[in-house]
Structures are given as C-alpha cells and as structure tokens.
C-alpha cells in the first residue's frame, strides 16, 4: 500500500511536469528539452530554503516560481531567435549549462552530494508527511495545473498558441506577435515545472543534480509523445504508463540499462505507428 501511494505521488508530480511540457511543446510547438532544468530550480529553491533557512514548504514554492519564471523569461530571448531544429539545439545547450551549475556551484547546491533533509509540507502544526496526505496535496496541485492550462487553451489565446506552432508566418500575418506568445508559454511552462520541483524535493526529502539532467527532460518528452501531443489528459496518461511500467519492470528484475533501451524503443515505435500518441491531437 505504501508502495502504491509512493508510485501515485510520483505519477502526480510527473503529471504536473508533463502537462506543462505539453503546453510548451505540444500546444505551442516549442520542442524544449530543458524542462528538467526548471524542475530542478523549483526543487533546489525548496531544498535550500527548507534546510538552510527553515522556510515553510508552501512559502518556498513562490520563490521557485519566481526564479524559474525569470530565468525562463531571460533565456527565451536568445532561444526564440531560433526556429525549430535550432531551437532544440539551443535548448540542449541551456540544459547542459543548468546541469553544470547544479553540479558545480557547490556553495549553493552542495554539488553532486545533493541536499538532504528537506522538510515535509506543514500548515501550522499540521504535517503532510504521511503519504496519503501528501498524495492529496499532489492531486490538488495537479488538478490546479490542469485547470489553469486548460482554461487558457480553451480560449482564443490557446488558438493563437497552436497557430504559432502550425505556421509562424500565418500567425504573424493574422496579426499575432508570435514571439511574445511563445515567450509567455515558455515562462508558464517553467513555472509549473518549478512547482513540480518543490513537491519532489519535499517528497523524497533530497535533491541532487542527477534528478534534473538531460535524460529526465527526454523522458518527459517521451511521456507526452506517448500519451499524446497537445492533449492534457494524454500528458497524465503518458506519465502514468511510463512510470507504472517502470515499476513493473523493476519488480520483474529488468536492469536499468534494459529499461532505458525499452524506452528508446517505445519512442521509435510510437513515431512510426502513432506519431500523435495515444490521445494526441497533433502530429510532429
């Protein structure tokens, strides 16, 4: 039971990541492979403030949001000068830089050793340390993420984001300042990744750079491609399938290397047979 709760919590946190990544990549068409960097910023903000300054979990979230939001806004200027393939490469460069900052700015992050002892969420004297309570909190956060993003996507604002994804020239000729919409989407995506980061830091009470390296962003992309591009329910489904199958494989004694090979294989198979994913509305 404890184990199932743990898996559900991890799936919930990843749903926040995949929904926000889908907002950026599936709906807006920005193939970001640095989502884990913003995830890491949120996690480190919570970890550092919680362990060194004894901040309440709920107060650390806005700090992570502000840091990730500002960094996303700043890096969006050079990144959005690039289109499509070049954008992916610049995103890769950014992911590498962020990983190295987490790894090497040891005064702040303690480097590869990571930060231990992150506190559980507390409201007054009430602790969410118990897994069922933490799960409720994560479900509330994921539901709010869904509500927030879905709300945007149901309006003409969402139509313009999709228009920018489909054809920038047409969107611009139709009167839309494409880059400012893309920037807004990128910042919103980063903010939700940071929120997910706060939860993971508090849940496993430990952060280290490996949890936010490039391959994590790639896994998130595989989840949204599997579940469905440009579909919020698909993002949750993708996280659910990938993470439960991971546990099943681990339980069956499949080694980590074979798990990775399998995920690579899944990605290739989807791209060939169902490029829009299970619930997807958009083919890359």
């Amino acid at each position: 039971m404890d184990f199932i709760l743990q898996v559900l919590i991890i799936i919930g946190i990843h749903s926040i990541l995949t929904m926000s990544l889908n907002y950026v990549a599936g709906f807006t068409g920005l193939m970001s492979i640095n989502h884990a960097a913003f995830y890491g910023m949120g996690a480190y903000a919570t970890a550092i403030l919680s362990t060194q300054y004894d901040w309440n979990f709920f107060l650390t979230i806005p700090v992570g949001i502000v840091i990730a939001g500002i960094v996303a806004w700043l890096v969006s200027f050079p990144m959005l000068k690039m289109k499509e393939d070049s954008f992916v490469l610049v995103s890769l460069g950014f992911a590498i830089i962020m990983f190295n900052i987490m790894q090497n700015w040891t005064d702040l992050t303690k480097g590869p050793l990571g930060i231990k002892g992150v506190q559980a969420p507390m409201l007054g004297d009430f602790s969410f340390f118990a897994k069922p309570l933490f799960l409720v909190l994560v479900i509330v956060a994921a539901a709010l993420t869904y509500w927030f993003l879905n709300r945007i996507l149901k309006t003409p604002y969402g139509t313009i984001l999709k228009g920018a994804r489909e054809n920038e020239t047409v969107a611009r000729v139709n009167g839309h300042n494409v880059v400012s919409y893309q920037r807004s989407a990128f910042v919103v995506g980063a903010i939700f990744a940071a929120i997910a980061g706060a939860f993971i830091a508090s849940f496993i009470s430990f952060v280290n750079p490996k949890a936010f390296e490039l391959i994590i962003s790639v896994y998130l992309l595989i989840m949204i491609i599997l579940g469905g591009m440009a579909s919020l329910p698909g993002s949750i489904l993708g996280a659910f399938i990938m993470l439960t199958s991971l546990e099943v494989l681990r339980f069956a004694g499949v080694s980590a290397e074979w798990q990775q090979i399998l995920y690579g294989f899944i990605l290739i198979v989807i791209m060939f047979f169902r490029p829009q994913g299970i619930l997807g509305k958009y083919k890359i």
Binding site: I160, E166, H176
Partner: peptide, 23 residues
C-alpha cells in the same frame, strides 16, 4: 490554412478579437 487545427479555429485565428484575449 493550418491543417492540424479545426476550420473554426482557423477562422478564429484571423479574428481581431482573439488579440484582445490576454492571460
């Protein structure tokens, strides 16, 4: 026309109104 969007969405995309929809 943008092939992966609906016909109505394509029409909405060119409406001046859509620009007034801010976050």
């Amino acid at each position: 026309l943008l092939p992966q969007m609906t016909v109505l969405e394509n029409l909405m995309l060119s409406s001046k109104y859509s620009e007034t929809v801010t976050l």
